[in-house]
Amino acid sequence: MRVFLGIIIGIVVGGLFFLFTMKFYQSQYSTVPDVVGLSGTEACERLKTSGLFCDKSSSETVVDTYPRAGSRVKKGRTVNLYYENPQKKIVPRLSQLNFPVAEEILKRLGWNYETVYFPFGTEKDRVLATYPKEGQIYNGKLILLIDTGEKESYFLVENFVGKKVDELKDDPRVLLLGTGDTVVAQYPPEGSIATKVILILGEE
């Protein structure tokens, strides 16, 4: 009888411990609400009620989020909001996203883009940067710098801006993009450690 009673007590205690653990776990996480179609201000308020934050508020309409609605995330996380704006196009925040996610966001927002793969060795298919940078108003084609996940030899980046294309066309450290005969921008900037440098060409 004592053995049977001990088993019953053990089951009850174990069940209560399991329920407590599950409740504690669930209290640490929240489900991303569906805020597509709301204004940025309304979306931020709804996220706040779920224990989450938005990256930026706006009066414009939300067309997408990352993480997506229905995702389970830790409370206190920042959710990126992507806005519809027919009058101007602002480069969205894509850095550190996986390329398939970034690609879907760009398609939803109607962006044209091209990809450049670099062996930075952090994580395969991770977006390292965009050109132009996030937050800038731009109506052209975006350039996405994507990590191949591999590693190569690194070097200290010098300043290439202002140099002529004839000086650089045989340099294995650089990748030339655009038209023109002069470097007008570069990524990463001078002083960085990199395996290659993207050089944007234009007219001086």
Rank of each mutant, 00 (worst) to 15 (best):
L94V: 05
K75W: 07
G37V: 02
K48D: 01
S50I: 00
S71P: 01
L94Y: 10
K56S: 13
P92G: 03
L38V: 06
R93S: 12
V73R: 01
T31H: 10
S39M: 05
Q96N: 15
Y83E: 04
N98R: 11
N98L: 14
S57Y: 07
C44S: 13
K88F: 01
G51K: 07
V36F: 11
A69G: 06
E60K: 14
T31C: 08
V32M: 10
K89G: 02
P33L: 12
A69E: 11
R72F: 11
V79S: 03
L94M: 08
G37I: 04
L52E: 08
E42W: 04
T65L: 13
L97G: 06
K88M: 04
R68D: 14
D64T: 08
T41P: 00
N80V: 03
E42N: 07
S71M: 14
Y83G: 02
G76F: 13
D34K: 15
Y66L: 09
G37L: 02
S59V: 10
L47C: 00
R72Q: 08
Y83P: 04
S95C: 09
T78F: 09
Y29D: 00
S30V: 08
A43T: 02
S57T: 14
R77Y: 08
P92R: 04
T31G: 02
L81H: 01
K88H: 08
S71N: 13
C54K: 03
D34M: 13
K48E: 07
I90D: 04
C54V: 09
E45R: 13
D55H: 10
R68E: 15
S71F: 15
T61D: 01
V32P: 07
R77N: 05
R77E: 10
Y66D: 06
P92T: 05
Y29W: 11
